[in-house]
């Protein structure tokens, strides 16, 4: 015979499970949103530190020769 009467313990356990589920879902949504933003912004940006770094294809000196040579 199973337990038919709901106790406060069951309510607490359910609130914990539902709360954790919602937190994880929110975390996934936030990480997904961040990834989309980073990808859409990141054509000329390398890394994640907002430091603007030119990629090799944007180099001002494509031949790689040193100045003055």
């Amino acid at each position: 015979m199973g337990l038919t009467q709901e106790h406060d313990l069951h309510r607490r356990r359910r609130s914990r499970n539902v709360g954790l589920g919602l937190v994880l879902a929110a975390f996934i949504a936030l990480t997904f949103g961040l990834t989309m933003v980073k990808i859409s912004q990141g054509s000329d940006m390398q890394g994640y530190d907002h430091t603007y770094q030119l990629s090799p294809r944007h180099s001002t000196n494509p031949s790689g020769a040193e100045a003055g040579q």
């Binding site: 106790h7 914990r16 954790l20």
Partner: peptide, 22 residues
């Protein structure tokens, strides 16, 4: 007996709700 046992656990042996963690 089962209900008595549950009542004791709910009284404070770590069966916390989500709000307690908040």
């Amino acid at each position: 007996d089962i209900q008595a046992d549950i009542a004791v656990q709910g009284g404070g042996t770590g069966e916390a709700g989500f709000g307690d963690y908040v």
